[in-house]
Amino acid sequence: MISCEVSIYPLETQNSDQVVNQALASIKDMGVTCQVGTISTYITGSPEKVWECIRTLYDTASTRAKELSMVVTISNSQKS
Rank of each mutant, 00 (worst) to 15 (best):
15 N>L: 08
35 Q>K: 13
50 V>M: 03
10 P>Q: 03
28 K>I: 12
52 E>Y: 08
80 S>V: 11
39 I>T: 07
75 S>V: 02
17 D>N: 14
54 I>N: 10
59 D>M: 11
77 S>Q: 07
70 M>V: 00
64 R>K: 15
12 E>T: 11
41 T>M: 01
51 W>E: 01
4 C>D: 00
39 I>Y: 08
56 T>A: 09
66 K>W: 01
44 T>C: 11
62 S>V: 03
10 P>F: 03
51 W>P: 05
63 T>E: 05
67 E>V: 05
10 P>T: 04
13 T>C: 01
38 T>L: 10
53 C>G: 06
56 T>G: 10
20 V>G: 10
34 C>S: 07
4 C>T: 08
50 V>D: 01
12 E>H: 10
57 L>C: 07
56 T>R: 11
19 V>L: 03
51 W>H: 14
71 V>T: 12
32 V>M: 09
17 D>A: 12
20 V>C: 14
27 I>Q: 06
57 L>D: 06
22 Q>A: 14
46 S>P: 05
17 D>Q: 14
51 W>D: 03
77 S>L: 05
23 A>E: 06
49 K>I: 04
9 Y>L: 15
48 E>L: 11
64 R>I: 08
72 V>P: 01
60 T>L: 00
65 A>I: 01
10 P>L: 01
73 T>L: 12
75 S>N: 05
30 M>K: 12
12 E>K: 12
19 V>N: 03
67 E>Y: 11
21 N>W: 06
47 P>I: 00
72 V>S: 04
41 T>F: 00
78 Q>T: 11
49 K>Y: 06
75 S>Y: 00
19 V>P: 02
49 K>S: 12
37 G>A: 02
73 T>F: 07
4 C>H: 07
43 I>K: 03
78 Q>P: 05
60 T>F: 02
69 S>W: 05
68 L>T: 11
23 A>C: 04
1 M>W: 03
40 S>T: 02
16 S>A: 14
39 I>G: 03
60 T>Q: 09
29 D>C: 08
45 G>C: 02
15 N>R: 13
14 Q>R: 13
10 P>E: 00
58 Y>H: 15
41 T>D: 00
42 Y>V: 14
67 E>R: 15
35 Q>M: 05
22 Q>D: 04
8 I>H: 05
43 I>D: 00
46 S>F: 06
61 A>I: 04
59 D>N: 14
79 K>V: 10
48 E>V: 07
18 Q>L: 13
64 R>S: 12
31 G>F: 09
47 P>A: 02
47 P>N: 10
28 K>M: 07
18 Q>N: 12
76 N>T: 11
19 V>S: 01
7 S>Y: 01
57 L>A: 09
23 A>Y: 11
48 E>N: 12
37 G>R: 07
19 V>R: 08
16 S>C: 10
61 A>S: 04
14 Q>Y: 04
73 T>Q: 15
2 I>D: 01
45 G>V: 06
